[in-house]
């Protein structure tokens, strides 16, 4: 399949706007599940406001949250897809910039030293573009994630040592949830990276935090940790917005990677209740949008 880059640019513009306006169905289901079991009155009222906000955003075709985040595009290219990688990246950046200027959206991106805002949601190395490749497929898939700062500012890495064992990982996750309190706009998805190098570990925590609810770690050890940690963090009573309640997190997600004999790294990245993402899929049959 040959990719039409003009179409990719248009889709990358559309994806940013769609992601900001439509919450994926798995997150909506997550809200229903929490709302049905929340026992704290304040927590219940806050969940109610969040659920109402999802409806108002749909009715008014408005953004769910004002934070347009740092734009991330996760691209998966099938081996039977023909595309110029450099031009593909250019098309993604262009689409992101056009979404910002044409909708218009608040550009939340500044230079880290001068703090200058180009008002395009882009800048040096931003949007973040991650590339992956899959075999035997004529499919190009682009996932867009506007990563809000309230949750991103609560990111942690600990280079624990092997002698601390898996207990260090578990303790670290619980302590991060306590430290985050209401700052991450709970209920959250707590993303945990276990293993790898320092940078891979942090990257895994982001993949985990932005995975759909109901999905599980492919590594059975990771999946076991997910189940244990999900129930543990919801015993803390941090609750929606950190104002108390049972609904601290929709789930804890874990991703693992092999690591060094001397290392035991753990990273935590959180996704807030505005757990936004959108996906465009290009196949020989055409372009379709989903989550």
């Amino acid at each position: 399949m040959k990719v039409d880059l003009k179409e990719v640019e248009e889709a990358c513009k559309e994806l940013y706007i769609r992601a900001l306006k439509l919450l994926p169905p798995d997150i909506k289901d997550g809200f229903k599940r929490l709302d049905a079991t929340e026992t704290d009155a304040t927590g219940k009222a806050i969940l109610g406001t969040m659920i109402r906000n999802i409806k108002v955003a749909e009715e008014n075709q408005n953004l769910l949250c004002q934070d347009t985040g740092i734009p991330i595009y996760n691209v998966t290219i099938g081996s039977d897809v023909e595309v110029d990688g450099y031009k593909l990246k250019q098309a993604i950046v262009k689409g992101c910039e056009r979404a910002t200027q044409e909708h218009p959206l608040r550009s939340s991106v500044v230079h880290p030293v001068t703090r200058k805002n180009q008002h395009t949601s882009s800048g040096r190395r931003v949007p973040v573009i991650n590339l992956d490749f899959v075999e035997d497929s004529e499919t190009l898939s682009i996932e867009m994630i506007p990563k809000g700062s309230g949750s991103e500012n609560n990111s942690w890495l600990k280079m624990a040592v092997p002698a601390d064992g898996i207990d260090a990982v578990k303790t670290f996750v619980v302590d991060c949830v306590l430290d985050a309190g209401g700052k991450t706009c709970p209920p959250t998805i707590v993303g945990v990276g276990v293993g790898g190098t320092a940078d891979l570990c942090v990257h895994l925590s982001k993949i985990a935090a932005t995975r759909p609810l109901g999905s599980h770690c492919e590594d059975p050890e990771g999946a076991r940790l997910e189940a244990e940690l999900s129930s543990a963090v919801n015993q803390l009573g941090v609750g929606p917005q950190g104002l108390g309640g049972d609904s601290t997190s929709f789930a804890v997600h874990v991703e693992t990677a092999a690591t060094h004999i001397t290392m035991n790294p753990v990273a935590v990245n959180m996704q807030c209740h505005s757990a936004r993402r959108a996906r465009a899929t290009f196949t020989p049959k055409g372009l379709s949008y989903g989550f």
């Binding site: 806050i46 406001t49 906000n53 008014n60 408005n62 769910l64 949250c65 934070d67 809000g148 706009c185």
Partner: peptide, 12 residues
């Protein structure tokens, strides 16, 4: 305290 992330509603 306002409900963070409920901006579509806040805008109204």
């Amino acid at each position: 305290a306002i409900v963070g992330g409920a901006a579509a509603l806040e805008t109204t």
